[in-house]
């Protein structure tokens, strides 16, 4: 049991972080905060991947003399791509927010909904 706790401790923390981000996304009414939440959610998933790749006693996967154990490079590769995707999403989201603000004069979800009901 204790073995499990220590072995999985890192994952649990990551899960907590992911869920915090997820919570922000679905609970906040402010559009910018939603985007922040998305960001945290995604960043935490990146952490999950990196955690997967870690090898005990390993070192960064740069081949050099004197090291035999390397940390798995593949998750790093994937996450490099994913980070970029994340930023791309964020930027589109922010652009949308700017436009929404212009059209509705607010970036609060409830107020936008209220305006739609009226028109």
């Amino acid at each position: 049991m204790m073995d499990n706790v220590f072995g999985l401790y890192n994952y649990w923390v990551v899960i907590f972080l992911m869920m915090t981000g997820f919570y922000i996304v679905i609970s906040q009414r402010n559009l910018i905060k939603k985007v922040i939440g998305l960001n945290i959610f995604q960043t935490s998933v990146f952490l999950l991947y990196i955690t997967i790749g870690k090898v005990e006693g390993g070192t960064a996967p740069i081949v050099s003399e004197g090291f035999n154990v390397y940390t798995n490079p593949l998750p790093s590769v994937l996450i490099l791509t994913a980070i970029v995707v994340g930023v791309a999403t964020t930027s589109v989201a922010l652009a949308l927010i700017v436009r929404i603000r212009e059209a509705y004069e607010t970036i609060e979800e409830d107020e936008i909904l209220a305006q739609e009901k009226l028109t």
Binding site: F22, V25, I26, L31, K34, L38, F41, Q42, V45, T89, V92, A93, L96, I97, R99, I100, A103, Y104, E109, I112, E116
Partner: peptide, 16 residues
């Protein structure tokens, strides 16, 4: 615009 934003948020959650 809000439609696209809502799609974006849900879509990103889905993708994540």
């Amino acid at each position: 615009l809000p439609a696209a934003f809502q799609y974006l948020v849900m879509g990103t959650i889905g993708a994540t």
